[in-house]
């Protein structure tokens, strides 16, 4: 395997470069996927039927917590990648663990929020608005959940490769 040291660590082999590029294309497909879900949500947002509307349902504190957790986790994983490029293993793992905790925090608040909605009688079956809301948020939550497993597993794999 040819290793090109002039490039950042994760780009240093041909195989990795292909995989990273492929992942960018995959992200393009993900944008199309979420765009479709958002479009569905905006089409159905007034389709509340006999169920509650967003004004009744949405509460600022939980939304704020989720946003802060999520945006901070994007920042800390960026710091982790930077530490990895500098070859500082402990810092890398530290930032990754912080990211995972923030992700878990986000999911916890989201699940709490879902349980609250259901207690108020707002289920995925109540109205088209709620079907699209739960689907959009749930798809995003599923992505975060997958990341929670994927990140540690790929870290362990690269550790065993070293």
């Amino acid at each position: 395997m040819k290793i090109d040291n002039s490039l950042p660590l994760e780009y240093s082999t041909e195989e990795n470069r292909l995989k990273i590029f492929g992942f960018w294309i995959f992200l393009g497909a993900e944008i199309a996927l979420f765009a479709t879900l958002f479009a569905t949500y905006f089409v159905l947002v007034d389709g509340t039927g006999n169920g509650p509307t967003g004004e009744h349902l949405f509460k600022l504190p939980t939304l704020m917590f989720q946003t802060i957790f999520l945006l901070t986790s994007s920042f800390t994983i960026g710091l982790g990648i930077n530490a990895m490029r500098l070859g500082r293993q402990k810092a890398t793992i530290g930032f990754f663990i912080i990211t995972l905790i923030l992700g878990l925090g986000f999911l916890g608040v989201e699940i709490y929020e879902f349980v609250e909605y259901v207690h108020e009688g707002a289920t995925i079956q109540t109205s088209a608005f709620l079907s699209s809301l739960f689907t959009l948020l749930g798809t995003h939550g599923a992505h975060v959940t997958l990341g929670l497993f994927w990140e540690p597993s790929s870290s362990c794999r690269s550790k065993s490769a070293v």
Partner: peptide, 25 residues
Amino acid sequence: TVALALMTMDRLFGTQFFTMANGGS
């Protein structure tokens, strides 16, 4: 992928995406 997932949920889980009542379209 999204369209079929919504269809599956409408048929199996009773969601309201494409229904005639409860705000579906």
